[in-house]
């Protein structure tokens, strides 16, 4: 990491909804080509953390830096920041009124001013690479959950974002469809993507993530290499959480 700032850095980030403090001083960083997994119980703040990272949520205090630039400054253009970050949601959030191809090319054409022909050529390449080339003209609701989520991932990466945020992207899928989505994430990692992902898939986190961050009640409880945090956790809270999610 010689001198280059992390792709994403959170410094003591706080966020509250009314009286309920969801994030209570989170600091973490994601470096270039690094995959960081956020784990923790429901309500521990994983989703909110991801939302603060792409400015879908006002932070109550602290700083969020994207490639060294303070994006929590109210003077920055939030749309321009979000255009540099790809996000995939738990419930896919594909646009049901647009074909798969239009879903994938929308941001390229509207935000990045890529000519339609070029945007479509690239989208078709990407769709072909995940085996969905034949579905380009189909509408999202005619696809299976796994196919929809793969399209959503392709939509997020079509504009070559600096950072990819994945918010429990397999939680809404059948176990047999989870595999195809995780395969795609694995390929993104191999291609050198920088990823921050909230996940419940511990085996996958152990395999793909370089680092794991365990969130507990809005704080970073433990962080470290995936093998260590998931294999030999130091904190009692982490052990308790892992024993609960890994128990049959």
């Amino acid at each position: 990491m010689s001198g280059a700032p992390p792709v994403l850095e959170l410094r003591d980030v706080r966020c509250a909804f009314g009286d309920h403090e969801v994030l209570r001083g989170i600091s973490l960083s994601v470096h270039r080509h690094e995959v960081v997994a956020l784990i923790g119980a429901s309500g521990s703040g994983k989703s909110t953390l991801l939302r603060t990272a792409n400015l879908l949520e006002h932070i109550g205090d602290g700083q969020v830096l994207l490639a060294g630039e303070d994006i929590s400054d109210p003077r920055v253009d939030a749309d321009a920041v979000r255009a540099r970050i790809g996000t995939v949601f738990q419930a896919y959030n594909l646009f049901p009124h647009l074909s798969v191809l239009d879903n994938v090319t929308l941001a390229a054409r509207l935000v990045h001013n890529v000519p339609r022909a070029r945007a479509e050529a690239r989208a078709l390449d990407l769709l072909a690479s995940i085996g969905l080339g034949a579905k380009a003209k189909a509408f999202p609701d005619t696809l299976s959950g796994g196919q929809q989520q793969r399209v959503a991932i392709v939509r997020a990466i079509a504009t070559e974002p600096e950072l990819l945020l994945l918010d429990e992207i397999t939680s809404a899928l059948d176990p047999e469809l989870v595999g195809e989505v995780l395969d795609l994430v694995r390929r993104l990692k191999d291609d050198g993507a920088t990823i921050l992902m909230a996940t419940h898939e511990m085996a996958f986190a152990r395999e793909v993530a370089d680092r794991v961050v365990f969130l507990d009640q809005g704080r970073v409880c433990e962080t470290g290499p995936a093998r260590e945090v998931l294999g030999t956790p130091r904190e009692p809270r982490t052990r308790e959480f892992l024993s609960r999610v890994l128990a049959p």
């Binding site: 706080r14 001083g25 119980a41 309500g43 109550g60 205090d61 602290g62 009640q217 959480f241 609960r244």
Partner: peptide
């Protein structure tokens, strides 16, 4: 009880200069 808030009632956070 996994959602227990162990430190409810603790002093509210003082916003930083930056905030």
């Amino acid at each position: 009880g996994q959602g227990d808030r162990s430190d409810v009632g603790r002093a509210p956070h003082e916003p930083s200069e930056l905030e």
